[in-house]
Measured scan of single mutants.
Amino acid sequence: MGFKLLSKLLVYLTASIMAIASPLAFSVDSSGEYPTVSEIPVGEVRLYQIADGVWSHIATQSFDGAVYPSNGLIVRDGDELLLIDTAWGAKNTAALLAEIEKQIGLPVTRAVSTHFHDDRVGGVDVLRAAGVATYASPSTRRLAEVEGNEIPTHSLEGLSSSGDAVRFGPVELFYPGAAHSTDNLIVYVPSASVLYGGCAIYELSRTSAGNVADADLAEWPTSIERIQQHYPEAQFVIPGHGLPGGLDLLKHTTNVVKAHTNRSVVE
């Protein structure tokens, strides 16, 4: 069995187990497998329904001669939608809004960016022009300005110390501490036991640490421990890039980060 097929099978099995364990909360999309990078042309966006009122959005972007996937989250909030992270750029984010209108038909009224990198804030200006209120932590807003990236308009308070959590509509926002970046936030959907790890969490097929220019490698494993301790009931975990899975993604990420750190020390 090929690795790609095995990865998709694991996603399907995880979703099936969740649907059985929580039949009222989960209505997993039966329309197909989780979209992969090879299936999404740059400039297009796919939506994948995880649970009743919960979707991931998947886009792709060219970077350094390669094409990478990027995940975000959409959560229903009454007759409105909360968006977590842009679709990595203005063109993708405009396509995301169009796809949401086509498939869901509810307005996106608020959006949260989970850290300051372009795959999370690139497209904020498109959201703002569409009347979406954009939010991020003060740290993310400051770092985005320093980096020359787009800056969300509103500040999220109460997320300055490791372990801080605040309720934001249908989700809980959690600051686990520094990891992929010093400002990275985690998003949890309690009604569906869905954990969105953003770039602080890796997919299972990833074996290298990737972009760690703004990471705190020493603190990252401790931050992941905080996530595990705060959300032990999480059933569906979405990484910032690639295929979702279960809580095993947290341990896998820790292993990859520690291996990278150990290699760096040896070198």
Rank of each mutant, 00 (worst) to 15 (best):
A259Q: 12
F168R: 02
S191N: 11
S31V: 13
Q235M: 10
A218I: 14
P41V: 13
S264C: 04
A209L: 06
G169R: 05
Q229H: 11
F168N: 01
A129P: 03
G245K: 02
I201Q: 02
S137F: 01
G158T: 07
D214V: 05
I17T: 08
Y188F: 11
G122V: 07
I50C: 00
V121P: 04
L106E: 06
L24R: 10
F168M: 10
N149S: 13
V54Y: 00
T109V: 13
I100W: 03
Q229F: 10
K4N: 14
A179T: 07
T109L: 09
A25D: 12
T182C: 05
A218T: 11
S27C: 14
R120V: 00
A259F: 08
S38V: 07
P244D: 03
I58S: 14
I151K: 08
V42G: 15
V189Y: 04
Y48G: 10
L156C: 03
I20R: 05
I186E: 01
V194R: 01
R263A: 14
P107K: 15
T109C: 05
F116A: 08
L243F: 10
S181G: 01
A215G: 09
S139D: 13
A66D: 15
H260L: 07
A19N: 14
W88K: 00
Q103R: 14
L217E: 08
S208L: 12
N149Q: 14
D164F: 10
D125G: 09
A218L: 13
V11C: 14
P176T: 03
T140I: 04
P138L: 08
D29W: 11
I84P: 00
N92I: 03
S22L: 11
L185N: 03
L47W: 02
L96T: 00
N211Q: 12
V67C: 06
L127T: 00
L9G: 11
P69D: 15
A234Y: 04
A21I: 13
G2L: 11
Y68W: 04
G148E: 09
P107I: 10
L82E: 03
V108G: 03
N92Q: 06
I20Y: 07
T261Y: 08
N92Y: 04
S113F: 05
D118R: 04
L243R: 15
A209Q: 08
D216Q: 08
Y196I: 02
T182H: 11
P244W: 12
I224N: 04
R46S: 09
N71I: 02
Q61P: 04
G65F: 07
V237E: 00
G197L: 02
A66N: 13
L81I: 12
A98F: 13
G210W: 03
